[in-house]
Structures are given as structure tokens and as C-alpha cells.
Simulated assay, not measured.
Amino acid sequence: MRTVALKRHHRAAPLILMFALLAGLTMAASFARSEPAQATVASEDAIQEGQKLFAANCATCHGLSAQGQDGVAPTLVGVGAAAVDFQVGTGRMPMQASGPQAIAKDVQFNDKQIAQLAAYVASLGPGPSVPDAEAVDAALGDPANGMQLFRTNCSMCHGSVGGGGALSQGKYAPALWATTPTHIYEAMLVGPQSMPVFNDANMTPEDKRDIIAFLEEQRDGAPGGLSLGTIGPVAEGLWAWLLGMGLIVGFTVWIGVRSS
């Protein structure tokens, strides 16, 4: 039996086993690297196509290298893909004319072209990326917490329920009812126009999703039936006060006329 065991366990067996193990690990690593390599090629194609679109549609204001021009347009180096997806995806860019702020209009590019532009700008420097579907899913958010956050951080410009409002120097905060959840999230990330930046340090991704959940609930109309302009409780209370006092005064005058 000992002779048979020695024949089975040759002295070179550990060495052969080690080489076989190293070869297997090398092959596994090469297969694991093959997928990212294909993704990198696809990303490079998107960047190149995005650069062409940028040169044809954006370079006039932002410069051929997106370095910006003083008094014309800011640099786009480091703004990230989220800023491009928001500005181009809402039609604010390219601008039709100079003004206090970029106005939302019909989108001039399709989704693929917007992604290519975003990929090119993202390649120029690190910046916020486009949020995924889970990050903007209103069904996963808490509208009650979103209401508190929105009225603390956003209502002074956008109104108590996202109806929008006027700002100084010809600017305005737009209504948010028709804005997609992705664009709302991106606006909080990049702070377009006069809006402050709410990064993950001062407002967590979960908080942003809660705000989206709150705004989604406001799209169904006013719970009381009359929106009264949706400009906040102060204006609504004033309207109720004027209407109520007007009815009381009118009724009092009517009683005095009848009694005389």
C-alpha cells in the first residue's frame, strides 16, 4: 500500500499543482479584466462623440476646451455629468439669447446625445454624476420628511409646495411640478442659476429622495380643491381674512340698511 501511495504522490506534484493554480488565477484575472476593457472602449466612443457635439453646439460660448469665457459663459471643467444632463436635458442649454438666467425650453438633443455630451464634460474633471433610478424613486422616499426639508431649504424661493416664485434682478425660481425626479435631484447636486448647492455633506441622498417624494405628491392638485395660487400659507391666510372680513362687513351693512 505504501508503494502505491508513493506512486500517487510524486515529488513534482506540489510544483505542478502550484503552476496550475497560478495559471488558473492568471486566466481568471484576464477574463475579469475583459469586461471593463470593453466598457472603457464604449466610454471613449461616447466621449469622442460628445466632444464633436460640444464643438458644434457649445464651444462658441464655453470655448473649444470648455474653459469658459469671461463675461460670456463659465468653465465646465469639473461640473460633472449631472450638470450637463440637467442643463441640456431641460432645454436650458444651449441658450437662445443672453438674459438674467437660462430659460427652460424644448430639448434640442435626444437622450443618447445628452449622455454623450455629459460623458465628454465628465472626462474633463471630476464632478457629480447622474443619479441612478433608485436614488430618484419617489416610492422609496418619505413625503413627510421631504415636506419639512423642502419648507426649510427650498420654499422661500420655490413656494411652499413647489409652485415657483419671483427673485431679484429678473430671475425666478421655476415651478417644480413638471420637472422630472432626476432633474430635481441634479438641481440639488449642482445648484443651477441662483440655487445653492445641496451636496451629500449637507443633505443626504435619502433626504433628496424624500423631497422628490413630497413634490411628487403635490402634482395631483390642491387637497382643499382651490390652489389659491399655491404661494404659501401667508397669502392664503390673507385671502381668507379679506374674504371673511368682507363678508362680515357686507352682511353688517345689509342688516343696517334693512333695519333703517
Rank of each mutant, 00 (worst) to 15 (best):
T75Q: 10
T90C: 12
Q48D: 00
F54V: 10
L238V: 06
F86W: 03
A104P: 11
S259F: 09
L242A: 08
F109H: 05
H10R: 14
P100V: 14
A133S: 13
R92P: 11
I103P: 04
A135E: 09
T182C: 01
L176V: 07
I231R: 06
P74I: 06
P128Q: 04
A46P: 00
Q101G: 12
Q169M: 06
L226A: 12
T90M: 14
G232I: 10
S168W: 05
Q48V: 06
A23L: 13
L228A: 13
S168N: 14
D220P: 01
P205I: 02
T3Q: 13
T180C: 05
V130R: 10
L6W: 08
Y185S: 00
D70V: 14
A104F: 08
A104L: 11
A138Q: 10
G229R: 03
R11D: 05
S260Y: 10
L243M: 06
L189T: 02
Q218P: 10
A222Y: 14
V121A: 00
C58G: 02
A144H: 11
I16C: 07
A201P: 01
A175T: 09
V77N: 01
E216G: 12
G164M: 03
P94N: 05
T60H: 04
P143S: 14
I248W: 08
W241A: 15
I16W: 13
P181C: 09
A178V: 14
M27R: 00
P205T: 07
M156N: 12
A66W: 10
L215F: 01
H9G: 01
T179N: 12
F31D: 07
D200H: 11
A20P: 03
V107G: 04
L167I: 03
F150G: 07
A213C: 08
H9W: 13
M156V: 09
G78H: 14
E35S: 15
G244E: 04
K112S: 15
P181D: 12
K52E: 06
G256N: 13
R2H: 01
A46E: 04
A56L: 12
D142K: 09
A115H: 05
P192H: 05
